[in-house]
Amino acid sequence: MAIIDLQNVTVSFDNQHVLHSVNFAMKSGEFVYLVGQTGAGKSSLLRLIYVDLQPHEGRVSVAGFDAHRIKSREIPKLRRKLGVVFQDFKLLPDRDVYENVAFALYVTSTPRSEIKKKVLMALGDVGLSHKRNQMPHELSGGEQQRVVIARALVNSPSLLLADEPTGNLDPASSAEIIELLRTINVRGTAVLMATHNYELVRRYPARIVQLKDGKLLEVELRERK
């Protein structure tokens, strides 16, 4: 079953098409790279999926929600089914690692007894249990990104969206993040990762779609060599 289904989606800013009649479907449990140059519309496509942006034409359906018909009070429910990871982390700077991850559970009114268990498990998954009492600014970029991934995972989402998750990281940390995302994918979570780091894509092959001139194309890995 498709977890993401975009049909003839058009998005324009200032009368310029960023996405033009885009069709894209992604199955549950799939791992997909979304590649394209800066400004190609990768972030806009992801924003369509977490309903921060509405298409000007076409249909977007995500995890059983139809973005066109969704009521504004249903958007939080959809977002809880997704995990979103950003290049600039978006951690809450005024609370420690544990609280940052636990925050996603407070939002969903998870019982207190379960919160601790789930947070420690998620931090264990990303290898940061020992840093749970540190503040975000005390961590390296790679570590911060792993906290964000832990926060995205703690609600057991069926889909993880990653917008240039390695954009601010050195090659070693980038590789760690990709490996982490692949592990998460192997456990059953679908991952859609926007990136322009072709080196990583080559090292960790998966389905690739490319945004170019507002169009979405399927790309074979061999063609990029």
Partner: peptide, 16 residues
């Protein structure tokens, strides 16, 4: 402001 944006991203309702 950034914190509010993050809250929304995680799926916090407006009331929350």
């Amino acid at each position: 402001r950034k914190i509010i944006q993050t809250m929304k991203l995680i799926g916090a309702t407006r009331t929350f």
